[in-house]
């Protein structure tokens, strides 16, 4: 009995958007998409490597945001731990998002229908944009004057929002093949 894995992949529920469907048809017919399809069947390691890079970028983003939230809740030891983290987190997250953007585009060209027509794709993009804006806002609040007090209601609310938005982004991303 195989209850999980690829057998659960169901056909996408397509958006009722003719322009998007037309774009997807055009993208799937491009030579770039055909080339990626042939590369991934002849050298699957390359495609798995692109997905690995995407996941590594996500690891940086999730860990940085997770520790920001933990710091806001007072879970990091050290006097200026949160300030140090927030100073360094944003550039690392920006770099990781750039990696995710490039690898994500490659995956879209490889599977335009599966990704672009999935109902989970747009929510994922919105949540990633929200999460990034929230991270930048949090970093500014940490360094602003009078700053934000660790463990205060405002800090707790920001921490919970960070956790909620990025958890939602990961769930939406994982939901793409299922939706």
């Amino acid at each position: 009995m195989d209850l999980g894995g690829s057998s659960r992949y169901s056909p996408c529920v397509y958006y009722d958007a003719p322009a998007l469907q037309e774009f997807v048809r055009w993208l799937a017919a491009t030579s770039a998409s055909h080339w990626l399809q042939s590369v991934s069947s002849q050298a699957p390691v390359l495609l798995a490597s692109v997905q690995t890079l995407h996941l590594l970028g996500m690891s940086v983003v999730i860990a940085a945001n997770g520790f920001m939230a933990i710091g806001l809740l007072g879970g990091l030891r050290g006097r200026d731990a949160l300030a140090c983290l927030s100073r360094r987190a944003v550039p690392w997250v920006m770099g990781a998002l750039a990696v995710m953007l490039v690898t994500g585009l490659i995956l879209i060209v490889r599977w335009p229908q599966r990704i672009l027509l999935s109902q989970a794709f747009l929510p994922k993009l919105v949540l990633v944009a929200d999460g990034m804006a929230l991270l930048i806002y949090t970093a500014r609040r940490v360094h602003g004057k009078p700053g934000i007090k660790v463990g205060s209601p405002a800090a707790t609310a920001l921490a919970l929002l960070l956790l909620l938005v990025w958890t939602g982004a990961v769930i939406a991303g994982r939901w793409i093949p299922f939706a």
């Binding site: 209850l3 999980g4 659960r8 996941l55 590594l56 996500m58 690891s59 940086v60 983003v61 999730i62 860990a63 940085a64 997770g66 520790f67 958890t167 990961v170 769930i171 991303g173 994982r174 939901w175 299922f178």
Partner: peptide, 22 residues
């Protein structure tokens, strides 16, 4: 159940890998 479980696994694993990488 399965997509949520898979997403939770990816979330935990991403945190583990990201923090160890730091």
């Amino acid at each position: 159940g399965f997509p949520l479980l898979d997403a939770a696994h990816i979330l935990f694993q991403a945190f583990v890998v990201g923090s160890i990488a730091a």
